[in-house]
């Protein structure tokens, strides 16, 4: 991969004001808002997780959805505007282009996670070094399905449609993933819907280093299915796109 090109892409993405607000700052703001709302530090959920820790992880996960999703979806804009045609007149291959977007999506997911964790630590989240590493690592890797989802949207949607789709998808992934409302309080039918989404299982996995009884196997299975499924759709769509030309 061309790291210099990636760095220039990153600069372009980071300068985007919307990225900074939604992906980096908003999760932390929501976190601060919610810990005051939910009675603050000291209280614990049924699974033994403190409210502060749980909210910190939920909000970090929220940040992991929107940013990576938006990066991939920008492919739709570059496809429509003719920039992609310009790129085809360079040594960059089509696969190289998609990998760059993928790497970019992973990179933009990082600052939001780190910021909310720092604020979390300040606000009294106490984890061991290994636990921090496990939680942060899982959160970050949790961005993979959303990066891929964004790329699929970018390859399929028009530049106009992309905005609506990413907005709706971010909301649904968050809402039905149990970020805003705990899955336990949802009716059973809704719970089965939630358990189809990657968000729910990523949330489960992030809690795995801290609590017992997490169904890691199912979590990996569901997330893996999303990753493989989205990759296949992206690859096929991309091939069809190239063949048409």
């Amino acid at each position: 991969m061309n790291t210099r090109f990636l760095a220039l892409e990153l600069r372009r993405a980071v300068r985007n004001g919307r990225y900074l607000i939604f992906t980096v700052v908003l999760p932390t703001v929501m976190f601060l808002l919610f810990i005051n709302l939910y009675g603050g530090a000291g209280q614990r959920f049924q699974n033994g997780l403190s409210v502060t820790t749980s909210l910190m992880m939920n909000m970090a996960l929220f940040g992991v959805i929107a940013g990576p999703l938006a990066i991939g979806a920008r492919i739709a804009v570059e496809r429509g505007s003719g920039w992609q045609r310009q790129l085809r007149l360079t040594p960059l291959s089509g696969a190289g282009y998609l990998f760059t977007k993928g790497a970019l999506g992973m990179l933009v997911a990082l600052p939001g996670i780190v910021l909310v964790s720092i604020v979390g630590a300040v606000k009294g989240v106490e984890l061991g070094a290994g636990q921090w590493l496990g939680v942060l690592g899982t959160l970050w890797l949790g961005a993979v399905p959303f990066v891929l989802f964004g790329i699929v949207v970018g390859l399929l949607a028009s530049a106009d449609g992309m905005q609506a789709i990413t907005g709706l998808a971010s909301m649904l992934f968050g809402l039905l993933g149990g970020i805003w409302i705990p899955a336990d309080v949802a009716p059973e039918w809704l719970q089965s819907v939630m358990k189809v989404l990657p968000t729910y299982w990523i949330k489960q996995l992030t809690e795995a280093p801290l609590v017992s009884g997490v169904d890691v196997k199912t979590a990996l299975l569901v997330i893996g299915a999303w990753v493989v499924g989205l990759s296949v759709v992206a690859a096929r769509r991309f091939r069809a796109d190239s063949a048409r030309a």
């Binding site: 210099r4 090109f5 220039l8 600069r11 372009r12 804009v77 920039w83």
Partner: peptide, 24 residues
Amino acid sequence: LQSGALLEDATVAEAVEMIAALHR
């Protein structure tokens, strides 16, 4: 190329720099 807008969120120099970065 005839068609093809440029990057809406980049400066002129940055757009040229991105293409330059891809060439040997």
